[in-house]
């Protein structure tokens, strides 16, 4: 895949992409450390290495557009504009978290910004966001809906069911496959008949596009075209972002990572943040001072989020029975 052209985006917007990608990375580095320090519970799946996909796609969206995420969902939340304080408080299991401490890392949602939730089930979100696509079509206000999912989900039934119905009904949808080449501990090479998920689009008569998922401009440009198509009634697009997670499936210490070391190393050299930073420097849109300023702002926001989480109360035990049903 050739390197993308710089998109028709103002330098501020390009730096904002870098800021978001770095925010995702620093947030997860801290989440991982706090997880292993026992301050965050359960399980944490890091998106590190895949930041260009969420940021590239969400840069092409408006606030009224809706997305759904996966078990690896922090990046999508941050790219859609979620509040770091409420995210971190949720990871800390606090009452002030997005889900009042009922969801944790795998279930952060913010319907107010069109983030319809991370989801602990592979392929669990695809049908839900397709319903949001149907809602957008029925609302008739030009909204679009984006399903983020992995290569693993592309082999599950709801992928086929939803692409067929979205193509048939011309729903304003983007199906964004984050192909990180591994479904949990099993490689895509072992589980996919063909290497490109995007090729399946032909079966539904919709565009299927492969992009370098570590090139945020390439992702943005593909998403932008798909959003235009969706908004104008052209129907869904399947975008496959070839990317890689730089860490193991989860942050659990001592977890086996069966991936080939040479493969991991090769992808580490294609780090999406380093790539964007280099290009912004080459374009004269970023210097050391500029980068330090961005990093400083992110670390300040992150420290504030940690402080907010740590100062927040745990839910009362009896809150466990709240919100089973809505009034």
């Amino acid at each position: 895949m050739p390197t993308s052209l710089s998109p028709n985006l103002a330098p501020d917007k390009q730096r904002e992409m870098l800021r978001q990608m770095l925010t995702i990375r620093r947030f997860e580095e801290r989440a991982s450390a706090d997880y292993n320090a026992g301050k965050i519970y359960g399980v944490v799946h890091c998106y590190i290495g895949e930041e260009a996909t969420a940021v590239g796609v969400c840069t092409a969206l408006g606030r009224g557009d809706r997305i759904i995420s996966t078990h690896r969902g922090h990046g999508h939340c941050i790219a859609k504009g979620a509040d770091l304080n409420r995210m971190m408080a949720e990871l800390y299991g606090r009452q002030t978290g997005y889900c009042k401490g009922k969801g944790g890392s795998m279930h952060i949602a913010d319907f107010g910004i069109g983030m319809l939730g991370a989801n602990g089930i592979v392929a669990g979100g695809i049908s839900i966001i397709t319903g949001a696509g149907l809602a957008a079509q029925m609302e008739g206000k030009g909204g679009v809906a984006v399903s983020f999912f992995g290569d693993g989900a592309s082999n599950a039934g709801p992928f086929h069911e939803c692409l067929n119905i979205a193509a048939t009904w011309k729903l304003p949808m983007l199906y964004v496959c984050e192909n990180n080449l591994h479904a949990a501990q099993t490689s895509a090479a072992q589980t996919h008949a063909l290497p490109d998920v995007a090729g399946r689009a032909a079966g539904y008569g919709i565009p299927g596009i492969v992009v370098d998922g570590n090139d945020v401009f390439a992702v943005y440009q593909a998403a932008n075209a798909a959003v235009d198509r969706a908004r104008s009634g052209g129907g869904p697009t399947l975008i496959e972002c070839k990317t890689y997670r730089q860490r193991a499936h989860t942050e659990r210490k001592g977890q086996a990572d069966p991936r080939d070391k040479a493969e991991v190393d090769a992808w580490m050299r294609k780090d999406p943040i380093a790539l964007l930073e280099r290009r912004l420097r080459e374009q004269g849109e970023l210097d050391d001072a500029g980068l330090q300023s961005i990093e400083g702002d992110i670390m300040a926001a992150l420290e504030a989020a940690i402080a907010f989480a740590e100062a927040s109360p745990f839910p009362l035990p009896e809150h466990a029975t709240d919100d089973v049903f809505s009034a």
Binding site: I126, S127, I128, G131, G133, L134, A135, P158, E161, C162
Partner: peptide, 25 residues
């Protein structure tokens, strides 16, 4: 538009209802 005949895809329909409901339908 309001009485939709669908493919025989109950997993999709059941999940789509969740998404549409979360969006106000």
């Amino acid at each position: 538009q309001r009485i939709r005949a669908t493919p025989i895809t109950e997993a999709a329909l059941t999940g789509m209802a969740i998404g549409a409901a979360g969006c106000g339908f």
